[in-house]
Design a binder for these strands. Sequence first.
DNA 1: CGGTTCACTATCCAAAAGGATATAGCTATT
DNA 2: AATAGCTATATCCTTTTGGATAGTGAACCG
Lengths: 121, 121
Amino acid sequence: MEKPVELNHSECMGILRPIRDALDVLNGKWKLPIIVALSFGEKRFTEIAREVHGITDRVLSKELQDLTMNGLVKRTVEDTFPVKVTYALTPHSKSLDEVIEALRKWGVLHREIILKGSSDE
Amino acid sequence: MEKPVELNHSECMGILRPIRDALDVLNGKWKLPIIVALSFGEKRFTEIAREVHGITDRVLSKELQDLTMNGLVKRTVEDTFPVKVTYALTPHSKSLDEVIEALRKWGVLHREIILKGSSDE
DNA sequence: CGGTTCACTATCCAAAAGGATATAGCTATT
DNA sequence: AATAGCTATATCCTTTTGGATAGTGAACCG
C-alpha cells in the first residue's frame, strides 16, 4: 500500500505557515488595542492599562511580553526614581501598517456585504 | 475630578472594529487551510476532511458553517444519488486575497527579522 | 508610620476552542 | 436484511485564553 497522498499539504503548509505566524502575532483580544495605544507615542505600564480599557494587569503584562518578544514593542527601563518603564513601538512594527490597513479595509467591505445579506457573493 | 479621559477609545474602536471583524473571520486553526483546500476547486465534505489533515468532522462541520455564514463559502446540495453536498468559494472570498497576501508577506518578513534576533527593530 | 503609586507576579477560575468518539439518516451494494 | 459510504450532529473531555483578585517591593507623600 502506497502511503496516502498528503503531498498537496506540504505545499499548502509552505503558504500557510507565514500566514499563521502573522495571525498569531496579531491575534487575541488585546494586541491591536495595545498597538494602537502605543501608536500615539511611548507609554508607561499603567498608562497603557488606563487607555486600553478592560484589560487587567496580568493580561497586559503577558501581552506586552508577547509583543516585545515579537519585536513589535521596545521595553525600556530607566533607572531613575522608582524605575520608570516605558513601552514604545519599534520600527519593525511599522511594517504591520499595510497588514492592518488591508484587514481594516476588508473588514469594512465584509460588513457591508454581510449586512446586504447577499448569500451568493 | 473631571471624568477620566477615555475618549480616544471611541475613536480607536472605530478603527479596531473592522480589524477585529476581519481577524475573527480568518482566525482559528482551520479557516485558512479550508479556504486553501477549496481554492483548488469545489469539494465535498469528506474530500475536504481528507485534505485538511488532522481536522475532525465536528470541527470541519462547524468551520464550514462559519465560513458559509460569512459568505466565503457556498454550500450546494444536489438532490441526486445520496445527496451530494459540495462546498465552493464564493466571489466574495476573492476579496480576501489581498489580505491573505499581505499577511503572508508580513509573516515571511517577520520570520526573517525574528531569526536575525534584532532586538531593536 | 500608614497610605499610595508603579510595575509587575501569583493564584485561582470561567469561557472558548478544539479533539475523540459515537451515532443518526440516507442510499447503494451484496 | 446486513453492510458500507456520505454528511453530518451530539456528547464528552482537554487545552488554551482571558478575567478577578490579591500581593510584592521599593519609593514617595503626609
